[in-house]
Design a protein around this nucleic acid. Structure first.
Lengths: 255, 255
DNA sequence: CGGCTGGTTGATCACTCTCAAGCGTGGTGG
DNA sequence: CCACCACGCTTGAGAGTGATCAACCAGCCG
């Protein structure tokens, strides 16, 4: 099914590209050694399913590279993506034996996996690990609530613009080019097809296509192929995205 | 501003109605004593604001009784509710000094508060506390993702039905009448006005009103006043809500 | 060359929003 | 006691956004 189990490379956590952003970020060397003993890598190709809702889930994992999607499906086939897992993001839930979402590799994907039971044991014994997981869960919760605003209240155009802004931000973080964010054109690779994008934004793929075309016609973005977007004006895009400037919350009337 | 600070009653945690569901649920007696030393109660009246986005947040709290809402607002006034805090739910985020949502008392409300710094210190020292908070955060994350499905993909009628089913479930949990859930009529008090309901469901208040009327005309529910709903057929309501039966996930094709 | 997949574009439809009027209850004051 | 108003809610008519249905296009691979 496309799943490739690699031989147990004894790859060093110290040289791991996401060492300082993943669940293991605040582990001490000895804690890292303990994790290293129970970890194993798995690779998936773009499109591979990783797990289905209801399946037994005997591992948890960190995304090392690539993008995975979390989606929910209704009986009549309507789908809503509820999460995007990017490098350093955590998948699986300690204490839960079955998956509650479909997880699919959107791009080629590499996971650092831990069998669930040993990981849960380590969570109990390793405050650095559980505290880090708590922070990550709270960050995800914030992201999910921001997404609620997008799904509930934003127009199709605002949704597309928001997604592009977020992808620009994430890609800047990954490339450590934060400083350059607000200046000049910026190339972003969409990790999602039009249909997946639609599932993420609560739209149809036709509407996604139309609104991307509209942004292209307006000159805010340019397209090279279907997946590569050049953001010509991040400021303009941010404006149509309807986001407040997160650094400078507006003053507010009090009753 | 309607905020009422009660005198520091030395009320006993042992007799607390939510003792076994709140963040303190898995604390040992000595841990509970430590919490008891830093706790204080605050009461709010229906409609009182508790905190605004961007305000300094020097406490965290557990809802003892009543309902509070978490909402996000866009510059042009569009609002999306992103959380409902019911008894035993936790508000505030350890490690964060400012509120990221508006929190408002939807009904008369009683909070068990902890100053943030001492609480954070206790989190560090008390695995029972941080582990419980992790579980609660993950539960909230699941709820938020379910809400994403509702906001992104459900019709107005499905949204209303889903809300009623959830309120029925929560009120059953609070009253320990789980067994009776599937049988007979069931009275639910809406903690939210039509407008708040609209903000929760990503609708307008007119659409909320229309769809509630539609459910009434169809005979699934009856209304006594604006806030009290009698669910005449929970099964029918569940059907129109579009939820899978959560206990029996459908079999699924594999590629 | 033909079929397949993913994407774009067009025409129409329908659901929800918007704007507006009306209703019922509760409170206030003449 | 009743007139009046305010507030929350309901209902109606019309408009608009995004969905649906359908045709078409480009790239890719057999």
């Amino acid at each position: 099914m496309g799943v490739v189990d690699l031989p147990r490379l004894t790859q060093n956590c110290q040289s791991c590209p996401i060492r300082h952003r993943a669940v293991c970020a605040s582990c001490e060397p000895d804690e890292l050694n303990a994790l290293e003993r129970i970890k194993y890598y798995r690779s998936f190709q773009a499109g591979d399913p990783i797990i289905w809702t209801g399946d037994a889930m005997d591992f948890v994992a960190t995304v090392i590279s690539g993008v995975a999607t979390l989606t929910q499906t209704m009986e009549d086939g309507r789908r809503q993506m509820v999460g995007l897992l990017l490098p350093s993001d955590f998948m699986g839930r300690p204490g839960r034996a079955r998956a509650t979402y479909d997880v699919v590799a959107a791009t080629d994907l590499r996971l650092c996996c831990f069998r669930r039971k040993p990981f849960e044991d380590m969570l109990q014994q390793t405050p650095h690990l559980s505290q880090r997981l708590l922070v990550m869960a709270l960050d995800e919760l914030d992201a999910s609530r921001d997404w609620q605003l997008l799904l509930g209240r934003k127009t199709a155009l605002e949704k597309i613009a928001t997604l592009l802004v977020i992808l620009a931000r994430r890609s800047a973080i990954e490339n450590q080019t934060t400083a350059a964010l607000s200046i000049g054109p910026l190339a972003v690779d969409l990790p999602l097809s039009r249909e997946q994008t639609a599932d993420y934004l609560g739209l149809t793929l036709e509407t996604v296509s139309r609104k991307i075309s509209a942004l292209r016609r307006s000159g805010m973005i340019a397209l090279e192929g279907n997946r590569r977007v050049t953001i010509k004006s991040l400021a303009a895009l941010r404006l149509v995205s309807g986001e407040h400037d997160p650094e400078r919350p507006a003053d507010r009337e009090r009753a």
